[in-house]
Design a protein around this nucleic acid. Structure first.
Lengths: 338, 338
DNA sequence: TTGTAGGCGTTATCAG
DNA sequence: CTGATAACGCCTACAA
C-alpha cells in the first residue's frame, strides 16, 4: 500500500520528483535521484492508484466494451461465440498497451452516459447497434468510439466491419451458379441497418443477378438456438421446392442441418445449406459446412489499433475498415447442373 | 459533469447533506431538503464519480474476472465457449447488484496484485487455476474470491464447481456397461489438481470398477482445436482395439469424431465417442453426441450469489458448491453386448 | 534539478 | 437536522 508520498519520504525527495520519475520525465531529474527513486519503488512495491490518477487527470485508462441490449432482456451477450472471441482478443491487445477492459451491458442511452461518467471511461467499443437514436448519442460523446460490425452513415464514428454484403452475395451466387433457384434465407431478426440486413441484401442481389425473383415466403426469421432452428427446418420442409438454404451464421446453418436431417432430409442430396463466419464448428458437422470465412482475431486486433490511434489523439488512419471474406467450399452444397 | 458540490450550491445546502441524501441516510435530513436535493440531482443529471468514491472509501464496486494464463502465451481465454458464457451470466448478475466487471488476463502473481491495487478491486472471480503457488497468494488477499471450477484444499477459498469426477465416472461406466473395455481418454494437458484431473480420475475409477486395467497408452493429451483433434484421431487409429473414446470436452469429442471419420471410421459403429459439457454443438453433430450435461448459466449465477454474500461481509452459506451433472444419452455410443 | 501548494469528487468525523 | 473540514493518492503549475 505504498503511496507516492511513502517513497518520497524514504528517498528524501518530494512527491513531484517521484511523480516525474514515474512518468519518465527524466530530463527534469538527476540521474542518481532517478536511480534512488526507482529502487525505492521496487523495494516498497509501489503500485499506482488508478482511481486517484483518474480523478485528477480525467482519464482512466478504462475502455468499455458495451453491448446494447435491445431485444431479449435476458440475453447473455456472450452467447455468440463471435462476441466472446473478439473480446478476448481485445482484452489482450488493450492490456499490452496499458489499458483496462470493462464489460458492460446497457439498455438505454442514460445507462451508457452514466457508465461513462462513473469511470471516466476513455474509450468505447460498441457492438450490436443499429440505426436508432443511439448513434446520435454516440456521436456526441467526444471520446474515442470504435464500432464493431455496425453500419451507419454517421461517418464520424469509426467502424471495423466485414464485407457482409459481398460475402453473402458471393455465397448465394455460388448456389445459383450450381443451378439452385429456390433458395431460402434464414436469419435472426433483420434489423434495419444491421449486419444481417447487409447479408440479406447480398442474398437478394445475387438472386436478382441470376434472374430469380425474390420470394418473401422463402425468408425465415428465427433465433439461432437449436430449438428455433428446428422451427425453421419445419417451415422449410413445407416448401418442397426449396433446394438450398443461406443462413446468416454457422451456428444457425448447423442447427438447420440438424433439424432438416431429423425430418428425413439428406444434406446436400435433398437440400444444400451454407453458413457464415467459418467457426470451427463447420469442420465438425456432417457434412462439413460450406461457408463465408472471416478472421475474428484480426478484427479484434484491428479494432484495438484503431482505438489506440484515437486515444493518442490522432485521427485513425483508416476509420472504416472492411475486412475481406472468402468462400470456404466444403461439402454441404450439391450442384444441380447436368 | 455535475458534481456533488454543484447540486449543493443549487439547493443551497452543504455537500455533506447532499451526500447523505444520495446514500439514503434519510434520518439525518429533513423531508423537504431531501425532496429539493433529489429534484436537483435529476435536473442537473448528477452521476457519481466512482473514482472519487473509490479513492475515499477503499472500495470500488469493481469485480475482476481473472484468467490466469499459464500455458500458451497467446491463448485467448474466450476461446472456450464455456468461459464466455459464464462471463456473460456473471456480468448481468453483478450489474443488477451495482457492480462493475473488469476482465483481466494475468500471468504472474505480481500482475494480479498490481491489478487489485490499481483499482481497489472489491472481489475476484478466478478460473483456470491449479495447485501452484497461486493459491497461497490468493488466500492472503483479504478480499472476496470465488473460484470457478477449481480444486484446492485451501478451504478458505470459495469455489463453485462441478461433479467432475462423478460425471466422468458415470459416462465411463456407461461405456463399460455396454461392453467397452478398450476405452481411450482424450484431454488437453491434465494439470495437477485441475478439473481435467478429476475427470481423468473418474475415468480411471470406472475402469477399475469394471476390472479393466488402466492402460497409459490409451491416454491422448492434445489441445482442443480441430487440428490437434486430428492428431488424436490419428493416434487412436493406431490402436485398432480401441472401441470407445472419452473426451473431456464436447468440442474435443466433436473434433475427434471428425478426425476419425476422415480416416474412414464410422461412429458409433466402429468407435463410440462421448463428450463433456453438453453444449448445443452436441445436437448438431452427426451422430448426436452422448455427453455429460452441466448448467453453465446456473454456475454463473451461483458464483455471483456467493460473491455478493461475501461482499456484504457475510460468510457464504455454502462455500463449496458442487453442481450436479447428468448423463445425456444420444447416439454416439454403440453397445457391444449382443 | 527539486519543492510547495492546490485541487480532482467524495465521504466521514465531529461540532453546531 | 446541517455544515465545516480533513483526508483519500495523485498530478501540475509555479516557485525556488
Amino acid at each position: 500500500m505504498a503511496t507516492i508520498r511513502d517513497i518520497a519520504r524514504v528517498t528524501g525527495v518530494s512527491c513531484t520528483t517521484v511523480s516525474n520519475v514515474i512518468h519518465g520525465k527524466d530530463n527534469r531529474v538527476s540521474a542518481d535521484t532517478i536511480e534512488k527513486i526507482n529502487t525505492a519503488i521496487k523495494e516498497l512495491g509501489y503500485i499506482p492508484n488508478m482511481s486517484a490518477r483518474s480523478l485528477v487527470s480525467n482519464s482512466s485508462k478504462v475502455i468499455g466494451f458495451v453491448n446494447h441490449v435491445i431485444t431479449r432482456k435476458d440475453s447473455n451477450f456472450m452467447e455468440d461465440p463471435f462476441h466472446s472471441a473478439s473480446i478476448g482478443a481485445i482484452e489482450q491487445a488493450l492490456r499490452e498497451n496499458g489499458y483496462y477492459l470493462m464489460l458492460r451491458t446497457i439498455e438505454t442511452s442514460e445507462e451508457l452516459l452514466a457508465f461513462l461518467r462513473n469511470w471516466n471511461v476513455d474509450g468505447l467499443f460498441f457492438t450490436g447497434i443499429f440505426k436508432d437514436h443511439f448513434f446520435d448519442v454516440l456521436s456526441n460523446l467526444h471520446i474515442p468510439i470504435v464500432l464493431i460490425d455496425s453500419y451507419t452513415n454517421q461517418s464520424s464514428l469509426c467502424n471495423v466491419g466485414l464485407e457482409d454484403f459481398k460475402g453473402s452475395y458471393n455465397i448465394t451466387k455460388y448456389l445459383t451458379g450450381r443451378g439452385h433457384r429456390r433458395i431460402a434465407f434464414a436469419s435472426p431478426d433483420i434489423k434495419d441497418g444491421g449486419v444481417l440486413q447487409e447479408r440479406f441484401l447480398g442474398y437478394k442481389a445475387a438472386l436478382t443477378e441470376a434472374n430469380i425473383p425474390f420470394d418473401k415466403s422463402l425468408v425465415f426469421v428465427q433465433e439461432m438456438d437449436v430449438a428455433s432452428c428446428r422451427l425453421v427446418s419445419e417451415d422449410i420442409c413445407r416448401h418442397p421446392d426449396i433446394t438450398a438454404v443461406v443462413a446468416t451464421a454457422d451456428v444457425m446453418a448447423a442447427g438447420i442441418m440438424t433439424g432438416l436431417r431429423e425430418r428425413g432430409k439428406r444434406i446436400p442430396d435433398d437440400i444444400s445449406v451454407v453458413g457464415f463466419d467459418d467457426i470451427s464448428l463447420c469442420q465438425m458437422v456432417t457434412p462439413p459446412l460450406t461457408t463465408v470465412h472471416q478472421d475474428i482475431n484480426l478484427k479484434g486486433r484491428l479494432a484495438v489499433n484503431m482505438m489506440l490511434q484515437l486515444l493518442e489523439g490522432n485521427e485513425a488512419e483508416e476509420d472504416h475498415l472492411i475486412l475481406p471474406t472468402s468462400l470456404v467450399e466444403r461439402e454441404s452444397v450439391r450442384s444441380l447442373l447436368t
